[in-house]
Amino acid sequence: MDSFATKNAPAEPVDSAHVAPDGQPVDNALLSQTFIDDVCLTQPLPAQWAGLAAAALPKRLLQRLLIALTVCTISFAASHRVFAYIDWPLIVLPLLLVLALWLGMVPLQLRHCRYVLRQRDFIYCHGLLWRKADLLPLRRVQHVTVSQGAIQKLFDLATLELYSAGSSGAEIKLADITHHEAMVLSELLSALIPQDEPPLAAVTSSVTPPSAEQRHVD
């Protein structure tokens, strides 16, 4: 069942709320009492918030393992002669400890990642030690992109990026949600962006050159 059922969602916010991931309506009054309350940020999440995909955990673990393997291989290849004179336990044990900590952080980080699409804004919460919440009013969203890396493809995951005006990079980057959810969110966000603005100003296209009589050489 498509949990984002409003494929033809109206452009303007209406009194009736749009659909949340679990099928429950989400309006902007949601969590207004406890939105920024630390109870909301630390306690078990309300049902309306959506978390990352279950496959995000193995994907991130695999990604970090590959990174660690690459770094170790390059380091060893660059200075293997040095390693020959060093006591191995002095290097391997601390490295394994660091790697274990780095991998152990992944499930904790995923547990604190969540997002919700409301009538007027998109909210993304993340962060382990420093809890962060990025709030993007829908009227500020210029465009939305969905990208899929090589490792994400293995797990059918994707990254949703939201851009606002004037930003050099994505304002919100929601990584490791299912590809289907990313596509549905992208369509839903594009439909919910207010349509009262004039169309995009700058358009580039390949054209044939104007004829000689249309030109005026100064």
């Binding site: 940020l41 030690l129 420093w130 809890r131 962060k132 993007l136 009013p137 500020r140 606002s164 919100i172």
Partner: peptide, 19 residues
């Protein structure tokens, strides 16, 4: 003119309901 809002809470700020 605000494009985006970000809230950050450290452990200290959480204890005192600050952000």
């Amino acid at each position: 003119q605000v494009q985006q809002v970000r809230l950050v809470q450290s452990r200290l700020l959480q204890r005192h309901q600050l952000v």
